[in-house]
Amino acid sequence: MKTVLTAGQAEITDLFVPKEHKAALDLKGSVFTLTVLRLHTNDLTDIESELKGKIAQGPRFFEDAPVVIDVEPLKEAGLELDFSPFITLLRELRLIPVGVRHATPPQQEAAKRAGLALMKGGAIRDLPSQKASTPESDAKSAEATTTTRQHKIEKQAESETAPVPTITKVIYQPIRSGQQIYARGGDLIVLAAVNAGAEIVADGNIHVYAPLRGRALAGVTGDRTARIFCQNMGAELVSIAGHYRVFEDNVPDAVRHKAVQIYLDESEQLKIEPMGG
């Protein structure tokens, strides 16, 4: 009695980029947004009536729309699906089934015979048109979101099989005028004063648990989420991912000698905010 429609992405990476234009064809990678039809039942009558209802909400959206059939819930429930009548049903409803995912080996065979591609991967997100619908389908999309998250976690787990460790550099000595410290590929923690004329630079965040009187540049390789934290703000210059501010006439009274954090807000404005009590 359940069919939830979600949109997914099919990712294709570059296969071959020809150097000469004389070639008869080009092979290029591209990313498409496809509608994923997640089946919660193998009862074709139920599927038909519910799907007709969905299509009635936005007939033009679904007209000749390519869809990917996701049979994962069926697999979990131990249900089989008779592919050929199901595909016939989709075509009658003017949908174009192009692939199937999460199919069991026998289903894969059936899908191939029916001319469908076997799809792999792709994060699922809710179809926008479905969100602003009935409370009933809201509940369903909430359900879909949960599964989406699970998928994301699984996907992350796959891609992070070999995590790259970030190196944090810790400095215990004062950093003096004319000295520069660069934390490549990670964060920088300084436990002594950064004096005027000194420069501390990091690819990641910068923490200074002492007065910061020199220049601090975080996220220098472009990390906009990098932040600068310092216990006693008196910097000459601060910068996050190239967005910088010079304190020509000293730091504003509101944050001078205060514990602050410095970051980029949504509109890429450099923010200096007092922290703690």
Binding site: I175, R176, S177, G178, G197
Partner: peptide, 13 residues
């Protein structure tokens, strides 16, 4: 003071 700071940096490096 600034120059002394600089020289302290050189001492430590």
């Amino acid at each position: 003071v600034r120059d002394s700071d600089r020289i302290l940096g050189i001492l430590s490096a």
